[in-house]
Computed example of a mutant assay.
Amino acid sequence: MNKIDIDKQTFFSYALYIGRQRGYQKAWASMVFKANFGTSTVGKDIYHHTLPQIPSQDFLEWFSLYEQKVKQEYIAQKNAEFEKERQAEIEAKRKKDEQEKTLRKEKAKKERQKPYIQAYYAQRSHDTKLLKWAKSNGILNE
Rank of each mutant, 00 (worst) to 15 (best):
K26H: 09
T41H: 13
F33C: 02
Y66K: 01
F33V: 05
M31L: 13
H49N: 15
W28R: 08
T50Y: 03
Q21D: 14
R22Q: 13
S64W: 13
K71F: 00
F63G: 00
I46L: 08
A35N: 09
A29S: 15
E67A: 04
S64G: 00
A29G: 07
Q57I: 15
R20L: 08
W62Q: 03
Q53F: 10
S40M: 03
L51N: 12
H48A: 09
R20F: 07
N36V: 05
W62G: 03
T39G: 01
R22Y: 14
H49A: 12
K34F: 06
S56E: 09
Q25G: 15
Q21C: 10
N36E: 06
W62E: 03
K71V: 05
S40T: 00
A35T: 07
Q53W: 11
N36I: 03
I46S: 05
E61D: 15
T39M: 03
W62C: 01
F59L: 10
E67Q: 14
T41W: 06
R20Q: 15
A27L: 10
G38P: 09
T41K: 14
Q53N: 13
T39Q: 05
H48M: 05
W28H: 10
K69V: 06
K44G: 00
G38V: 03
G43A: 04
A35C: 06
S64K: 15
K44S: 08
P52H: 08
G43F: 01
K69W: 11
D58H: 11
H48E: 13
